[in-house]
């Protein structure tokens, strides 16, 4: 790896994992850190995203996070101060030239598509430079008390696409005949309202998840329909309904701390030449639901991977 004082790292996402990753990298003394996030701060972020306060609600996560760390005046490697640069934008619009300037990329995203985009860019960079340039990509993910960390050396070890099958399938769906004729659970009621009744009553527009009126419509109709089918309405609270329609996943500070730290340990090992490509486990899963379970292993490259297969030929 290059001279440590010249290291620059791009962090994808300034959410629960992002805040932890940024803090760790700053404490590791990485002088040049960039962060990209298109989200703004919400109240429900504050149980874990410790770089934000209530007064920051509505502002850009990337900008507020960068400001918080910069104000700490942390001295980094090579006597350079740690500086975080914020990019309040969609990361899939970042251009190749920009991405190429980083030593490493660490992601703490919730979007699978955004990760696939970055993975593809990085694999291309390795191939097009004929393996002269390779930017490691470390990916963290968390949900409830569970999480994972993947270390990708594009073109050398399994890429994000190679392990795509390890992700769970999309949200559970219910058969249409159940939700329309035989609803039995509150979820069936909501599903019917969202997929059938809304379109019947509002053919001109889509449901707006941020509109108070639309949510009120949903609450009222859900209670009415549940009563019609004698379904217990006590479960139909706004929290529950929002959880179902937005597919909200639980999130806590501790899991983010664990996963982000594992990602940053991988950063250290790569920077200080303590990482053995091909031998080192590149995939760690963590589960704190029952005891404290963590397991790491080597995820092999997939020879048919649509993104990184060309170098195997």
């Amino acid at each position: 790896m290059a001279d440590l004082a010249d290291v620059s790292i791009l962090v994808l996402g300034a959410g629960g994992l992002g805040c932890e990753i940024l803090k760790n990298l700053a404490m590791q003394g990485i002088p040049d850190i960039h962060v990209v996030d298109m989200d703004t701060i919400e109240l429900t972020n504050l149980n874990r995203q410790f770089l934000f306060r209530e007064s920051d609600i509505g502002q850009s996560k990337a900008l507020v996070a960068a400001r918080f760390i910069n104000e700490k005046n942390i001295m980094g490697l090579g006597g350079r101060p740690v500086v975080v640069t914020a990019h309040f934008q969609d990361l899939t619009l970042l251009d190749r030239k920009f991405i190429e300037r980083f030593t490493l990329i660490v992601s703490g995203l919730d979007s699978i598509e955004a990760r696939r985009f970055m993975n593809m860019q990085l694999v291309r960079i390795t191939f097009e430079s004929r393996f002269e340039k390779c930017i490691p990509f470390i990916d963290g993910g968390s949900e409830g008390l569970k999480g994972h960390c993947k270390t990708i050396i594009p073109g050398f070890s399994a890429c994000y696409e190679c392990s795509l099958d390890t992700l769970p399938a999309k949200i559970e769906s219910y058969p249409l005949c159940t939700v329309s004729n035989n609803p039995r659970l509150p979820e069936h009621v909501i599903e019917f309202l969202m997929s059938v009744q809304w379109a019947q009553q509002h053919p001109d527009r889509d449901f707006d998840f941020d509109s108070k009126e639309d949510l009120q419509w949903l609450m009222d109709e859900a209670h009415a329909r549940a009563r019609q089918f004698n379904i217990d309405t006590s479960k139909l609270t706004p929290q529950f309904v929002l959880g179902v329609i937005k597919n909200i996943v639980p999130s806590v500070a501790s899991t983010n701390a664990i996963i982000a730290a594992q990602c940053c340990t991988e950063v250290s090992k790569l920077l200080y030449n303590e990482y053995d490509i091909g031998e080192a486990p590149n995939f760690l899963v963590y589960n704190g639901d029952d005891g404290c379970f963590a397991y790491s292993f080597v995820h092999e490259r997939v020879s048919t991977c649509l993104v990184c297969r060309e170098s195997i030929q």
Binding site: N47, R48, V252
Partner: peptide, 10 residues
């Protein structure tokens, strides 16, 4: 929404 919404779900 509650500030703790994401963990109350746990």
């Amino acid at each position: 929404m509650d500030k703790f919404d994401r963990q109350l779900r746990l």
